[in-house]
Simulated scan of single mutants.
Amino acid sequence: MSFFSSNNPALKEEVFTQTAAEREVSGGSVMTLNGTMAKAALMLGIVFTFALFAWDLFAYMGVPVPYLISIPLIGVGLAFLITYKKHLAAYIAPIYCALQGLFLGGVSGLLELKFPGIATQAMLLTFTIFGSMLLLYSTRLIRVTERFKSIIITATFGIFVFYMASFALSFFGVDMPLLHSSGMAGIIFSVFVVILAAMNLLLDFDTIETGMQYGAPKYMEWYAAFGLTVTLIWLYVEILRLLSKLNSRN
């Protein structure tokens, strides 16, 4: 899981209001939708490129377990750094994306050996959900109210705590059944997390729109694109987890 989505400081509305105030003092170009989407596409391109590299590399070498554990932890550290050094997002976010690409390539390759076609299915579902959420948001069929934000943020934070607890307990040989079980409870849990990740996309769209409304400075395009990319990575991982559970039942 990517541990930062719309509830993390990376896409909080206050971030944009503060930086907008900075721009009014210093002047300069403002954040735009086209600029943000272009940077998000670039970051996803970096993720995809490094995922393909890792896929090919570890198909021959095998995937060392320490590698799979260490990269997400480094990613969390970089995400925190970006959160508190927003103006450095243009330099740090591509590194984060490259590392996540290596991680996703390794994990996807491992699961592909066990369940052929699962990576392609997960990718198609990820972008299908992204397009669907964008349509729902742009047509205002789902409105991102303050109550809606509060519910999604609270639920996402709860999942974050659960994942962190699961990671810590794994060192003591304690397994969280909902996370890995292919039973009905495990599948329902994964469906819930996939839906929650999809809902976070709506919050991402809303906060990006807020940034443009407030006239946030140009560098915030990198920052906002980073937040959106993180949510998409999280969504892909959760879909991959769900599909692996479903395939395990066959």
Rank of each mutant, 00 (worst) to 15 (best):
P64F: 04
R140T: 04
T156R: 07
F162Q: 09
A54E: 06
A79C: 10
L141Q: 11
R140E: 09
I82S: 11
A59W: 03
D56Y: 06
Y137W: 03
I159N: 10
M61A: 14
F127E: 11
L111W: 04
R147Q: 10
T145P: 12
M61K: 05
G131Y: 00
F103V: 03
L124P: 04
I159R: 10
R143Y: 07
T139L: 11
G62C: 09
V144S: 06
I153T: 12
L57E: 09
F171Y: 06
T49V: 10
I159G: 11
F167W: 02
V107H: 06
I95Y: 03
K86W: 05
G106M: 12
G117Y: 07
P72K: 04
L57H: 07
L111G: 10
A119Q: 03
E146C: 00
I153G: 08
R147N: 12
F171S: 02
W55Q: 08
G131N: 12
Y67N: 00
S132C: 06
D56Q: 13
R140Q: 11
I159W: 10
S166E: 08
A59V: 02
A122W: 11
T83D: 15
L88M: 15
I152C: 14
A165W: 13
F115W: 06
Y137R: 02
S138H: 09
L169T: 03
P94H: 08
L68T: 13
R140F: 02
V107W: 05
L68V: 13
L169S: 11
A54L: 09
L113K: 13
K114Y: 03
E112N: 09
M123P: 03
L113A: 12
L73V: 08
A98Q: 05
L81T: 11
E112T: 08
L111C: 08
I82W: 05
T145L: 12
F167Q: 01
I74K: 11
C97L: 14
F160H: 03
A168M: 04
M133W: 01
A119F: 03
V107P: 01
F148T: 01
F148W: 14
L78W: 02
M61E: 08
I71C: 15
I95D: 03
G131I: 00
F130H: 10
F167I: 05
T120L: 15
G117D: 12
F50Y: 07
S150R: 14
